[in-house]
Design a protein around this nucleic acid. Structure first.
Length: 315
DNA sequence: CAGAGTGCTGAGTCCGGGTT
DNA sequence: AACCCGGACTCAGCACTCTG
């Protein structure tokens, strides 16, 4: 491999080569300037510098055109080759090959997505990328930034609220709430009326230690308050509780639909106009250029779409 | 008269010296 | 070693002059 004299290159403005190439293309200072999106005097200044550096006129005015000198003509092909190589180098990006890649991804999931999305995602990855391994971590609003910041996870999926400036995110799906109850223990049938919904005892998911958890603001904005008697960070505990007690469980509609029946519960829409909860893929900005993570985000979108194409609970 | 070249200016960047 | 500051330098644009 040949060495590069960085000191000499440091003192040579490589933009001058671009100006030279544009002049060779246009043979006109004004048009060459327009090509580089600069004003004609700036191009003229560059030409003056090039003339000084190469100790040659390079282009001489003959009537209405600028004729290249023999020195300029001999430089032209070499300058073009340099610029072409630079362009190729900048356009190059590392390719990611799912079938041959050996890599461990570390993903953060909110608790419901751990069971709802992760198994299907892993099953899918085993087929399309057999060399890929996955380490799942539990991620919630409270620890998301720390996990991403420390590099403990490559990306996270869930309902996390506002992202930091050094993070990127894309909405994967918008979640609605639904409720479940054991019809044998409750004095009504599905669909439940608003009055019953607001007065009956409730169990909710919460990661904050409060009874209402992250849905509290949504209910406040809807002008409603629930009679919350139980909260847990795990939806299985809520469903199991509702199986044995006369209580309403309000939780993400995907979870309610998929697991409610397993606990002998009936599903019904929440009889309130509540906002939706955006669930996003979140990753650090510095992972933007990683083709493997870009590929993984695409797989997550695909798997999510396959699991639940239309995530709607009818009101 | 169209287009190239020049002088001047402002904005941005670099760099070296002083200070903490 | 890190930070700050002021002077020097670079670059591009404006206004104008020059030239073929």
């Amino acid at each position: 491999m040949t060495t590069i004299d960085h000191f000499n290159l440091r003192n040579f403005d490589l933009n001058l080569l671009i100006a030279f190439d544009a002049m060779m293309e246009e043979l006109n200072v004004t048009r060459a300037a327009a090509r580089l999106k600069i004003q004609q005097p700036a191009m003229s200044h560059s030409l003056k510098t090039l003339r000084m550096l190469f100790d040659d006129e390079l282009f001489v005015r003959v009537g209405q055109t600028m004729k290249p000198t023999s020195r300029a003509r001999s430089l032209a092909s070499r300058v073009r080759a340099v610029l072409q190589k630079a362009e190729d180098a900048l356009a190059f990006s590392e390719q990611f090959s799912p079938l041959t890649e050996q890599r461990t991804f570390r993903l953060g999931f909110s608790s419901e997505l751990e069971v709802h999305l992760l198994p299907e995602l892993m099953a899918h990855l085993r087929v399309v990328a057999p060399g890929v391994r996955l380490v799942a971590r539990h991620a919630e609003r409270q620890n998301l930034h720390a996990l991403l910041n420390s590099g403990d996870i490559d990306l996270a999926i869930g309902c996390f609220g506002e992202q930091a400036q050094w993070q990127r995110s894309e909405i994967l799906f918008e979640e609605q709430l639904a409720c479940c109850f054991n019809p044998a223990l409750m004095p009504f049938t599905s669909p439940i009326g608003q009055q019953d919904y607001l007065t009956q005892p409730h169990a909710l998911m919460s990661f904050t230690g409060s009874l209402m958890g992250c849905v509290e603001n949504a209910f406040n904005r809807a002008g409603a308050s629930l009679n919350a008697v139980f909260s847990a960070p795990n939806f299985l505990a809520l469903l199991s509780f509702a199986q044995h007690s006369p209580v309403l469980v309000t939780l993400p509609s995907r979870i309610a639909r998929r697991y409610g029946k397993l606990f002998g519960l009936v599903l019904c829409p929440v009889p309130l106009q509540l906002e939706v909860f955006p669930n996003s893929i979140v990753w650090p900005v510095n992972a933007d250029s990683d083709p493997a993570l870009e590929w993984l985000r695409e797989q997550i979108r695909d798997v999510n779409q396959r699991i639940e194409p239309a995530d709607v609970v009818a009101h």
